[in-house]
Amino acid sequence: MSADQNLTKDQSNPAVDGKELIRFDKVTKRFGSNVVLDELDFSVNSGKHVTLIGPSGSGKTTILRLLMTLLKPEEGTIRVGGKYLTHEERNGKLVKAGEKHIREVRKNIGMVFQQFNLFPNMSALRNITEAPVSVLGLPKDEAEERARELLDMVGLGDKTDAYPTQLSGGQQQRVAIARALAMRPQVLLLDEVTSALDPELVAGVLDVLRDIAHTTDITMLCVTHEMGFARDISDQVLMFDSGRVIESGTAEKMFNEPEHERTREFLSAVL
């Protein structure tokens, strides 16, 4: 299985210069009186694979949803590739971003959901081609050719015409991964992508993601409970608790010699 050529490291990608790609500045997110993120600061450099770990309710998924603009922060700013995601500059002042600005910045971000969220009204192929054609303006032939390559890559070359309801959970999730990649995002957000799968289907999905991680330059931000997978692919692991990053480091360090008491507790509970 080899990753899509268009995504390989050989190709020069101006976005991959090891510089800061994502930056959260004092981001606060509340649901009612429940503070999920509390003045969170953190950044991710481009090309890195970062895994967010921590107990449930610690705000990991919220970070992905904020980046995908599915949620809006109450306070603070988020930047992607140097551009504000939540705000835009007008007459030298920062104001809440409009739809047009958001779409411009958001086009660099892709996401794979826990529940796959494939469009049930479209075949696997059209799930993948629809956005490249109607959002990026790719010619239909080109989009389809690319979609077939991507389906091959995720091992579903024979399922182009299948509808989501005719696919297993694992197959659906692999189509969803292909769909996200078809938009050529700089950042791929993976939100507990194996949590909704039957145990025997998890490995297939993780293999695809490993392959992408090892053969492409896509920056990955990953929330997962699969610690083995996290250890394999992560350049950096962030430990969250109560809406804050309490410890971070390489996968090696975080899994083998965590410093913080909470991290040790959490890892001993899940490993």
Binding site: M68, T69, L70, E99, R103, R106, K107, I109, G110, M111, F113, Q115, N117, L118, F119, P120, N121, E130, A131, S134, V135, R179, A180, M183
Partner: peptide, 27 residues
């Protein structure tokens, strides 16, 4: 229509009108 479908549409950067036409109304 499941809210998750709207979210998937946002994640693929569809405009509101495209989401309505291609995702929400057909479903």
């Amino acid at each position: 229509v499941a809210p998750a479908q709207r979210e998937a549409g946002i994640a693929l950067n569809f405009t509101k009108a495209q989401r309505l036409r291609k995702i929400e109304l057909p479903q």
